[in-house]
Write a protein that binds this DNA or RNA. Sequence first.
DNA 1: CTGAAAGCGCTAACAT
DNA 2: ATGTTAGCGCTTTCAG
Lengths: 339, 339
Amino acid sequence: MERKVTIEDIAKECNVSKSTVSRVLNNSPNVKESTRKKILEVIKKYDYFPNVFARGLIGKKIGAIGVIVSDITNPFHAVLVRGIEDICRTYGYSLFLCNTDGRVDEEKKHVKSLIQRNVDGIIFASIKLKDEGLNEAKRSGITVLLVGRLPESAEEFNYVIVDNELGGYMAVSYLISLGHKKIAYISGTWDTWPNMRRFEGYKRALEEKGIGIDKRYIFKGDFTLGTAYSIGTKILMMKNRPSAVFCANDMTAIGLLEACMELGVKVPEELSIIGFDDIPLSSFRTIQLTTISQSIYDQGALAGKILLEKLQKEDNNLSQIILPPKLIVRKTCAPPKMD
Amino acid sequence: MERKVTIEDIAKECNVSKSTVSRVLNNSPNVKESTRKKILEVIKKYDYFPNVFARGLIGKKIGAIGVIVSDITNPFHAVLVRGIEDICRTYGYSLFLCNTDGRVDEEKKHVKSLIQRNVDGIIFASIKLKDEGLNEAKRSGITVLLVGRLPESAEEFNYVIVDNELGGYMAVSYLISLGHKKIAYISGTWDTWPNMRRFEGYKRALEEKGIGIDKRYIFKGDFTLGTAYSIGTKILMMKNRPSAVFCANDMTAIGLLEACMELGVKVPEELSIIGFDDIPLSSFRTIQLTTISQSIYDQGALAGKILLEKLQKEDNNLSQIILPPKLIVRKTCAPPKMD
DNA sequence: CTGAAAGCGCTAACAT
DNA sequence: ATGTTAGCGCTTTCAG
């Protein structure tokens, strides 16, 4: 448990004042090349690093950001966080992980704690349509960035998202192009940005092709496998059963898939299923889900990159990135059975 | 971007010195009850919290720990981290997440950075048999705790693990009790504590029942689905094919399952498969893997709890907890086909 | 029981 | 180009 070496120690060893050491630490140009070199050497020799707290105390950057997700156990969030963390590492940043389970009070607590810790930035991955934590963060002056989801009004925020409306449109258009007309939607948690946007896309595709929306084909889920499973069994027992289902996310699709398995309904022969997200699970050989890809990892990495660049350059311009979704054709969609 | 309220502000408002405020902040007994009450009130009124950096600067606890995993994308780690984080939240602690991809240099970097940040403790979830980062952390005087895996010599560390040898023994004993004799093992990354211990269990079960070890039935994998899949196809084409396979972890088992699916081998009728870990995926209706449960979430939560208790009580005794594994019977094991 | 003052390690004026 | 000094917010002797 060795005493930690301080800027003073380095200064002494080099016969300079700590200001000079501080200057080379902060890349000030006003240092003679020879002294800079020497100081750098000694720093290396002692494996010295500036004390984060002394720095933090005077309000400087501390090289850490917070990431708020609803549940790291959800593969979508895990992959997203991984993308962010990888970027953090290359920039020498550390990452505070916060799980909220989608609860506003937990989110607010986390935001408060992150503000106290004076993090340089916060990435929100599980924003609500109305989000208090977000506003609190904004008010504190911390740079924030949204990934994957948007709140009601996002004009004044940095964000990286994929075009969820377009994704929904693509999914349903694909189903239609296969010949489907009776296309159901199993929603995610209703009052949520991704669900809204995907549903918009669903409606647009149907309307453009003159198919029209049948309310009996719209089911309210919550993005979880369990709920989707029970909705699935209901759908499969309907008299005028849909021939295809657009699921609000992959977990929902997989829940439905399980219901099919349980009831002996063949996919895609008797029912086409398309999801949204492209989580790792969806490409498993046992699943092979056709879906709309969000490029989750890339989305996370891009979000991290944009935030950290912004931090380093002290760039206060807004970055608002909308990525295109991608149709991933696997094995759960086929033309409808003629009957 | 309101100015932050400091201890000075509170002191002024209460007509006391900041020392007194500091005393109530630190639960010193030497404060008159009435002044304490008043100070507490004002603190609440201004929603004041002590500056983390000023505290950190003088070497006090900062209310944060680091968690080092190899990959948060791996469901095992995601669940573990979730367990830890939930406990952190109830204790008001923050959590630094570190991914290493199992690389020693990355781990060392992370450890260094955590030491610099003066975290109160570090939880290692992906320890190597020989682990430099671990020793570095130990040397720095930070409280460390190991979960799930142990290094070569763990006498001097806190840990929470499950008995992996016993788990392996239970898995293989179960297979034997079903009537299997030709039992293969697909290993994890060989030079790794869980793999070693599980393999020991495999051997003990076989030897105790007088079956003996057949080297042709031992395959070297690496805990990943992809590798397991290719090993799987090889196993299925063997002339004297095993009737059951003990897989070093669930991902391996699922890889093998996929190979079976691809080659039309029926599970469990033609091949029994048992895994290890019980990740969420294993209980999916499409998978229904029989496996050895590690109670991952509980393990994480317990680890977090023990570490934080230790931190709060400044308890330096060693805690070494060995949890029992549990056999989870689902649908991938059956008696061997008679031939 | 309470206050004054020193000091944690660093940066940023301000001098030189 | 470099040194001196004040100060960030807190805890902790040391006095009273």
